[in-house]
Design a protein around this nucleic acid. Structure first.
Lengths: 140, 140
DNA sequence: TCTTGCACCTCTAGTCGCTAGAGGATGTAG
DNA sequence: CTACATCCTCTAGCGACTAGAGGTGCAAGA
């Protein structure tokens, strides 16, 4: 029985030390046992859980969604439908976000193209921002 | 001389009432004059400024960037280079964000494809989240 | 005239997901 | 034994608002 310190847990899971404590404080991670000197002592399962959380966060899932995904993981006999729904919702979100960012990109490019690099009073960047009517791209 | 109330200013600029007050509080918008009964009384120029801010926010510029853009707008004899640089930085940010979201989308799609819609213990969604090694897409 | 109801005012606190820092205890290497 | 790293708890801060409490002012209908 090796005792895993919070630092080690952080290193292995890729989650930062204060973030590990934060996850414990919001109940995403069960409070681990403590050593005689009150230091947290994690188990391998905790590392997996932290890695799960980290990966899900990287994929942009919100903490509450992750909480649901974790309870599903904890009870493997449940239907997979909720996990499916959460992932699908996230996919739709991501697709929407990509579309809107592409529109932004187009608008920014138009802005930049029009900039003669002279003085502000000839600057399309400022001008376009000031008057949305000049914005040729219909992103909204 | 018509007096523009905060509600009217909000309606015309598309910025919400509390947000207008917030912008005033952080000095993005000059404090307008007040009526006898202490109500804010805006001028047309304030509406333009609010619309400018709103459009810039829609394009994802941060408040501090907008603050700089506004000072540029206020002094039209300055070089346009700063505005240019801010817009360019934003464009690069947006492009990066699009790339990373595309990678996420791919990973989410792989996850969903593998889901047999059965029970959690056969669910690829949970499984992929739990073990990043299974994530075939090299987005990081 | 009353009263209803809306728009306005200020101020504080909450949101999300951490991150930073204070101030102190403990563990480890030389 | 002395550094120094790591751990502990607690509080406050970030950005850009948003929500709510508690109060004033104003116009229109009964």
């Amino acid at each position: 029985m090796k005792k895993i310190t919070i630092g080690e847990a952080a290193r292995q899971s890729g989650v930062k030390v204060p973030t590990v404590r934060y996850y414990e404080s919001i109940g995403l991670l069960a409070a681990p046992s403590r050593s005689e000197s009150n230091q947290r002592s994690f188990e391998p399962a905790d590392i997996s859980r932290l890695a799960f959380i980290r990966h899900a966060r990287e994929l942009g899932f919100e903490i509450e969604a992750i909480r649901t995904l974790l309870t599903l993981q904890d009870d493997p006999h449940q239907s997979c439908a909720s996990a499916d729904a959460i992932a699908k919702a996230r996919l739709i979100e991501v697709e929407q976000r990509i579309r809107s960012l592409m529109a932004l990109k187009a608008e920014l490019e138009i802005m930049m193209d029009g900039c003669g690099h002279g003085r502000v009073d000839q600057c399309r960047v400022i001008e376009v921002l000031a008057d949305h009517g000049q914005c040729t791209h219909p992103h909204h």
